[in-house]
């Protein structure tokens, strides 16, 4: 292929691929042995390429038991999924039962026992009423009278005396 024939390169490739040379290329090849030879080479290469190309994808075969293996694997996977799904529902159910039992237990507990606030108030009241045993020793004679101190202008004599004890 001469330098002058470079312009025919693209057309030669096209011709080799399609198997037919365009009119002007055909005319050129009648007078140019180099281009005619290049065309032959390209055509042979294209034929070889077309023969070999399928081998790129079809060069190997699947084993005979492929179908059976795939079906078995698919069914096993499906069974596993079903088992997982059942297990999940069992877990959800168990969780729901345990939660419900806890809630019921807490409710029953709250109903049976006084509320925390009530219990605290009751304890405070009991504390306020509490007297130490030594309180008796601190009492003095006439304390009863002193406990009922007369108001301004009143006399101790008018203070009522508790006679019921006597």
């Amino acid at each position: 292929m001469t330098k002058a024939c470079v312009k025919w390169k693209e057309q030669l490739l096209e011709a080799a691929l399609t198997g037919t040379a365009a009119g002007d290329l055909e005319e050129h090849m009648k007078t140019c042995a180099a281009c005619a030879a290049e065309f032959e080479v390209l055509q042979a290469r294209r034929e070889r390429m077309d023969t070999m190309l399928p081998l790129v994808a079809r060069g190997a075969e699947l084993p005979g038991e492929f179908r059976a293996r795939v079906v078995a694997a698919a069914e096993a996977e499906s069974e596993r999924k079903r088992a997982r799904s059942v297990g999940r529902w069992v877990l959800v159910g168990a969780t729901a039962v345990v939660t419900a039992a806890l809630v019921m237990g807490l409710l029953l507990h709250w109903r049976a026992a006084p509320t925390t606030l009530e219990a605290e108030l009751s304890a405070a009241e009991r504390l306020a009423e509490w007297r130490a045993p030594s309180d008796v020793l601190l009492q003095i004679p006439g304390q009863e009278i002193l406990q009922t101190t007369p108001r301004l202008g009143e006399s101790y004599m008018k203070v009522p005396i508790n006679t019921e004890e006597e």
Partner: peptide
């Protein structure tokens, strides 16, 4: 499913092999 696998396995394998 087995029938579908049989119909398509060769082509699917070739797609991957290619």
């Amino acid at each position: 499913f087995g029938a579908r696998v049989a119909e398509n396995q060769r082509r699917v394998f070739q797609i991957a092999y290619g």
